[in-house]
């Protein structure tokens, strides 16, 4: 029954609607008693596959359906229609069996017992997931090393910083060395050193154990560093699925030119040069990739008036912002 091969995750034509209601607070006496129901489409026709050993980022604005999708994949929610398979099984029907083979980290909901040191939660989950002693000791040692938990995991959880708690939460959730891991905003509000440690651990697990990861996030750095592939959701629809380089390509090959100028300079009039930002002594342009050797541009950049300049590929966050902007305009 358990497939050894085949994709780690298969989602086919999944739909999900929520019934949400609006109370008419503030409209007058008794207004908060009346309610109006409204159907909200959380996921529409979502299909994709994730192979074993992949790291995939699930991107989207707040309310785009990321968390809903993660909850469907972990068997917490059931879809209205469509097929969902994780490791060849239906996460809704076989939730308890599948739970031993997958890992879930909800950044907003910690699994740790607040009043106890994290080691107590580790031991609790060891028994709950039926991890044997040898495996448990191995994984515990692994996480202590890779997440630098040595000074942390025996202290009461409530005394820890958010970053330290997240690291412990990550370890607690993945102690049973799951084959597929779903992360819902794992680095939300976490400081840089801790989020780097989390990323290192994630990469390392992927390499060492072949763990598959699906990361729902809106922290751009997570995507930039971690995932080769990104799936973008917008208003419940899958609007992109492919390499992250592909997102950049969709907008053509663009470069950013930043120039620091002497006072009082106007932007030069060169065809194809597009001023994006400017301040006193600072200008940022956008150019098509083929223009980097443009003679007029070179002449301008090397002229007396320019103190310093740089040409670079655009930031991924800018690309994504434009991506969303374009979508909004089109719809």
């Amino acid at each position: 029954m358990i497939e050894k091969d085949g994709p780690a995750v298969r989602v086919e034509d999944v739909h999900k609607e929520f019934k949400s209601y609006e109370t008419r607070h503030g409209e007058g006496f008794l207004s908060s008693i009346r309610r109006r129901y409204k159907m909200k489409k959380a996921l529409v026709e979502v299909s994709f596959e994730i192979n074993r050993g992949e790291i995939v980022a699930l991107l989207g604005k707040n309310g785009s359906g990321k968390s809903t999708l993660i909850k469907i994949l972990t068997g917490v929610l059931h879809p209205d229609s469509g097929t969902v398979e994780v490791l060849g099984t239906d996460p809704w029907r076989d939730r308890e069996t599948l739970a031993r083979r997958i890992g879930v980290v909800f950044g907003a909901h910690e699994q740790l017992y607040w009043n106890l040191p994290a080691i107590d939660t580790f031991e609790f989950r060891k028994a709950l997931y039926g991890v044997d002693n040898k495996q448990y000791n191995k994984m515990l040692k692994y996480f202590i090393d890779v997440l630098e938990l040595k000074e942390i995991y025996k202290r009461q959880v409530r005394e820890l910083s958010l970053g330290e708690r997240m690291k412990c939460n990550f370890a607690a959730s993945l102690l049973h060395n799951p084959e597929v891991v779903f992360l819902d905003e794992p680095t939300i509000g976490v400081d840089l050193p801790s989020s780097f440690a989390l990323r290192d651990a994630l990469f390392d697990m992927n390499k060492k154990f072949g763990t598959t990861f699906l990361i729902a996030t809106h922290v751009i750095d997570d995507v930039k560093i971690l995932a080769q592939r990104a799936i973008i959701l917008d208003k419940g629809k899958k609007i992109y699925d492919g390499s992250k380089a592909g997102i950049t390509k969709m907008f053509g090959d663009h470069r950013e030119v930043v120039a620091y100028l002497k006072h009082g300079m106007d932007a030069p009039q060169i065809k194809g040069l597009n001023l994006v930002e400017s301040a006193d002594g600072y200008m940022k342009f956008e150019i098509p990739g083929k223009m980097i050797k443009n003679r007029d541009l070179s002449a301008f950049l090397t002229s007396e008036n320019v103190v310093d300049y740089s040409i670079s590929e655009p930031e991924f966050s800018d690309v994504l912002r434009q991506f969303y902007k374009k979508r909004t305009r089109r719809s």
């Binding site: 972990t74 068997g75 039926g130």
Partner: peptide, 14 residues
């Protein structure tokens, strides 16, 4: 109310 039921449903116990 706090939504932490999701993490508990995802554990291998009803």
């Amino acid at each position: 109310k706090h939504g932490s039921i999701a993490t508990k449903i995802s554990m291998p116990i009803a």
